[in-house]
Nucleic acid binder design. Structure first.
Length: 470
RNA sequence: GCUCCCAUCGUCUAGUGGUCUAGGACGUCGCCCUCUCACGGCGAAAACAGGGGUUCGAGUCCCCUUGGGAGUACCA
């Protein structure tokens, strides 16, 4: 039997990191076993589902590279099928119409709470048949009253629930639309899902779903409830609390594979390994190795991982993602050095692509002014002579290469009896506007001769103007 | 409240009864390298929630306590 997994988000917001990890685990499980990964949109709550959210989720999946083999299937397109199943359940006596009003139910709950009981539907419409005037009924599933439901969870192990703890849940609203616990069962069944991998907030729903499955005469799939991801505050990170969007990481200059790598290590590990290429993840991942306990999202470690990927990925690949950041800054990469070269020069010193783009702006565009502190420290009168030396030598340099540039900087320092830093640093501030850049020879080479000469001239003029003002 | 789940450094984790004076990674702090910032190298501080059992022996098994999380909707 081929393995089939699914990711089934409800479109009530963007794709957040918790959802993305669940999707990743599902995807990994399917890929590992040569199975199929299905994307299903759980949009039965018409009130809260939006098309924008659907698009945001799709966009997130695409950016992460979690391609699905089937879907997206919208539950709203399957209402006919759900009606059919509800009718079947009604006919077999596994479901019944309930004419209780919301007010009655609310009152029931309050009384139960007051008596310190677990609030639950007491089944008062179980045997009643006659309709009530002016009340559109809901349809409830007739849950077994006795016995236990055993969930053999791939990550939790065996979990047991007493049927006496469960009540008769609503499977169709009074407007006829089906609810989650019904649709999820029908869909997983119809779509032949073999492994339901989802957040452990669904563990409590599982016995009800198994009961519905049994009423339908079907075999339950395998379940794997993965732990939640908590925010820095230790609170659950999910749709109802401020969870961070996957796409926000794109905006901040993260590589999708870095996010994926970070996410897979949250709740799963493989000895001491930290870095996993996608194919390694697929080979090594096993849903049974997933931890039971919730974990906290640690942005610092994600940042480190992103840096690792920036440093160790193919520069062409990094450059591709860098171009997105450049365009956000209105930079035309053809007006300066090739992005691949910028990546090679900057990758050790920038942890995100957004930072890389910002720090590389000076290669493409003249800066407005010097960073104050750096200028005060380096663009002083005594810098004029070495800068002038270099200006002349650079003009005469036959070969504009890092090696030749380096030689001139070094010779200038020696000639003037200065340490290399005393020459390189003023030069750096002159061409980059601030105290930080790649090695000075590489920086100048990438910047190009014309820009370099103009900026040195500009710096000399600036120093002299400062002197005149003083 | 009730039901279910969880519990190793600040964080992610290794650890499946003896090799644990508990290993790795992020972060933090030193030192080295150095034209800046970094990268890199070396080193340090840092954890088995508490209490009972079981056992010759427990981070590892059982129970209780405590703490955290989830569910308890005509949400998913």
């Amino acid at each position: 039997m081929t393995i089939r997994t699914r990711f089934a988000p409800s479109p009530t917001g963007y794709l957040h990191v918790g959802g993305a990890r669940t999707a990743l685990f599902s995807w990994l499980h399917a890929r590992k076993h040569g199975g199929r990964f299905v994307l299903r949109i759980e949009d039965t709550d018409i009130e809260r589902s939006t098309i924008e959210s659907v698009n945001a989720i799709l966009e997130g999946m695409t950016w992460l590279g979690l391609e699905y083999d089937e879907g997206p299937i919208h539950q709203t397109e399957r209402f006919g099928r759900y009606k059919e199943v509800i009718q079947q359940l009604l006919e077999s006596g596994h479901a019944y119409r309930c004419y209780c009003t919301k007010e009655e139910l609310e009152q029931m709950r309050e009384e139960q709470m007051r008596r310190k009981e677990k609030p639950r539907y007491d089944g008062r419409c179980r045997t009643k048949r006659e309709p009530r005037e002016g009340v559109e009924p809901v349809i409830r599933f007739r849950n077994p009253v006795e016995g236990v439901v055993v969930v053999d969870d791939l990550v939790r192990g065996r979990v047991m629930f007493d049927n006496s703890e469960l009540d008769d849940l609503i499977i169709a609203r009074s407007d006829g639309t089906p609810t989650y616990n019904l649709t999820v069962v029908v869909d997983d069944l119809d779509m032949g899902i073999t492994h339901v991998i989802r957040g452990d907030d669904h563990l409590n729903n599982t016995p009800r779903q198994i009961n519905i499955l049994k009423a339908l005469g079907a075999q339950p799939p395998q379940y794997a409830h993965v732990p939640m991801i908590l925010g820095d505050d230790g609170k659950r990170l999910s749709k109802r609390h401020g969870a961070v969007s996957v796409m926000q990481y794109r905006e901040e200059g993260y590589l999708p594979e870095a996010l994926l790598n970070y996410l897979v290590r949250l709740g799963w590990s493989c000895g001491d390994r930290e870095i996993f290429a996608l194919d390694e993840m697929i080979a090594l991942f096993d849903i049974r190795d997933v931890n039971k306990s919730a974990s906290t999202f640690n942005s610092e470690k994600l940042l480190w991982l992103n840096h690792q990927y920036i440093m160790n990925s193919e520069p062409e690949h990094v450059a591709h993602h860098l171009s997105y950041q450049m365009s956000k800054l209105d930079v035309d990469p053809t007006e300066g050095p090739a992005l691949v070269e910028v990546v090679k020069a900057q990758r050790e010193r920038t942890k995100t692509l957004a930072e890389m783009a910002r720090n590389s702006l000076f290669f493409y565009r003249d800066f407005d002014g010097y960073e104050e502190k750096a200028a005060r420290k380096n663009l002083k009168p005594e810098a004029v002579e070495p800068l002038t030396d270099m200006l002349q030598n650079f003009q005469a340099l036959p070969d504009w290469s890092a090696k030749a540039i380096h030689r001139i900087v070094k010779e200038t320092a020696e000639l003037r009896g200065l340490k290399l830093g005393k020459v390189a640093q003023p030069l750096r501030v002159a061409v980059a506007g601030g105290p930080v850049s790649p090695p000075i020879d590489i920086t100048l080479q990438l910047l190009g001769r014309e820009r370099t000469l103009r900026r040195i001239e500009r710096a000399i003029a600036w120093i002299e103007a400062q002197g005149a003002n003083a």
